[in-house]
Design a protein around this nucleic acid. Sequence first.
DNA 1: CTGAAAGCGCTAACAA
DNA 2: TTGTTAGCGCTTTCAG
Lengths: 368, 368
Amino acid sequence: MKQNGIYKIAELADVSIGTVDRALHGRSGIRETTRNKVLRIARELNYSPNPAARTLSKGKANVRIGVCIPREIRLYYDQVRAGMLEEAQRVRSMGVELVHRPVPRLGAGEKKQLEALLRDGVNAIILTPGNPEIAEPLIDKAEDTGIRVVCTTTDAPRSKRSSIVAVDPELSGRLAAELMAKFVPAGSKAAVVTGMLSTTEHRLKATGFALGFCTECPGGEVVAVLEAHESEEESYDKTCDLLKREPRLHGVYVSTVNCLPVCKALRKLNLEGKVALITTDLFPQMVPHLLQGTIRTSIYQNPYVQGQTAVRILVDNLLNGANIPVSNLISPTLVLKSNLHAFREASSDHLPAHPAKPASGFQDAVLA
Amino acid sequence: MKQNGIYKIAELADVSIGTVDRALHGRSGIRETTRNKVLRIARELNYSPNPAARTLSKGKANVRIGVCIPREIRLYYDQVRAGMLEEAQRVRSMGVELVHRPVPRLGAGEKKQLEALLRDGVNAIILTPGNPEIAEPLIDKAEDTGIRVVCTTTDAPRSKRSSIVAVDPELSGRLAAELMAKFVPAGSKAAVVTGMLSTTEHRLKATGFALGFCTECPGGEVVAVLEAHESEEESYDKTCDLLKREPRLHGVYVSTVNCLPVCKALRKLNLEGKVALITTDLFPQMVPHLLQGTIRTSIYQNPYVQGQTAVRILVDNLLNGANIPVSNLISPTLVLKSNLHAFREASSDHLPAHPAKPASGFQDAVLA
DNA sequence: CTGAAAGCGCTAACAA
DNA sequence: TTGTTAGCGCTTTCAG
């Protein structure tokens, strides 16, 4: 007389565990009435499967999560990937595995890679949609088949994606504005350098900054929003123009990762440290500018945590049936001179994971 | 012919799986030579046990983690606890359970509770040592028995604890100083309000601030370090004294959670907004002071993440045999007006975890 | 359509 | 001191 799980259901429904299994999984070869009876009882029992048993029984690769993100931009996506890998590693023994289908650059060929993931038969997808119009139908198709899609860093808000893991762009902009207002005198002029305002995230950062700056800086004004399309040259040229055109400019907020050309322009015009610069994210080449004060602070999007979180919520859902939070808008972190070394991107000693003392339990014996 | 895990070892060692089990777990009833042979082979095979199988076989409560932290201080420990519970919940199906042995206040009766935990036979302990001298021998005793001890928020650096999860106190102080230097004019005077300088954390925060302020603020000077011993009255009185004594004081850094008396003192002397105040952590009563600018920013220690992390590293170790990082010094986060609502302590809508769409897989059927 | 049975890798009780 | 065996809850295959 088994008293647990699937056996209990079988007993109450007066069928075999095989039939219970068929009912629970929507498999074929079962009469509708039987299925309904089993499902009803399962619900009454508040049944929830035992992930350990399932993992053990199925063997490896219970849960396959497809990942489609760019290969690299200034380390940003490397960090996202690292976060995902770490989290996947933790649950590997539970049969979770990642299936990578990277795109070379954001949005480049994501249709092909997404289609490949669907063919691969993954159970869920993590994606940075670069081209929402193209990605949306595929996202919707996946979700309609029961494949969860989580967007990260960028969003496809009009799709059926289950969740978004990203920083709140409007908040980023407002945070930048609040700080800028503390750095520059009242009545200052400020500008934004962004990618493309047609991208939702960039637009929200820009408007967040503009609104925040007006509120926080008495008499302050945002005199320009430069679209640099992630091009170093365009960014440099437009910034130089602006700096010449607006001699009373006191602050610049760069809302993309593309801040080096702006630093270069400031140096060229001998304005380093005079114009307050607030940037986005962090990579090694930014470190000297932060240390010498050209960059006052940077709004860090925590790519590592984003990757971790995306995997985590999917695993929780797939393994434990946990709900997926509709959105995971994380608050950005501020990079300053004093905490600079605490960020992975700026510290040379990657992951100082000491071997620690011999582990407990059986490991004691094995490692001894 | 089983080819995996314990069977493989048994086959190669030419013993039964029962013997392998005995060897691996240091159980009795096995000859030393046999044990060594088995262990050698296990190591050669790079054997690592299957947590799913183990969980399934052992039934519930595979891994019990003892928790000894204060019941509450301004919500801080509530957040720590929430983080621990969430993380434990995620792995409950893997047989992880928390055993709570709280103390009423930091350090109050922790000897008794720690001893109780040892009697309870927990596999690991999470602790906020309030009284390092008292806790240390017990920590050492636990570690000597193979019971991992992780300290969080506060440390017992001279004990054998396996790890510490906390913010870097020196970094907190330096960060406060760097910001203070950006808020006040050159040549300003500043002060620190702390708990007791005999506590390592408080001392490090104070010295971090002092050093940082001298470096970052040209001509700046830290004119006082007030020890308030977490007493509201003492804090208020000493702050009032200081403000009267030092009319040219431009900044105050409160390195404990005890900031309300300082706000009160500033109001009393009509200095709200004139003296830049930087605080530590966050609780609802601070919100108005942040919004109106009395508190310029607060150094948030992320108690929720600390709780999460402490449980997480122990589970990873106990379940997967992962190494325990020697230290987990997390970087503090800055609370400002714009991101205020992103913190759990300041937002009314606790955990807006939407039910999301029907889950995938079998859940579809069950929940349908 | 449904049932029976053999594992998945490990633990624990019982034999030898 | 060592071997054998019956589960743990679920999946999957093979018979009915």
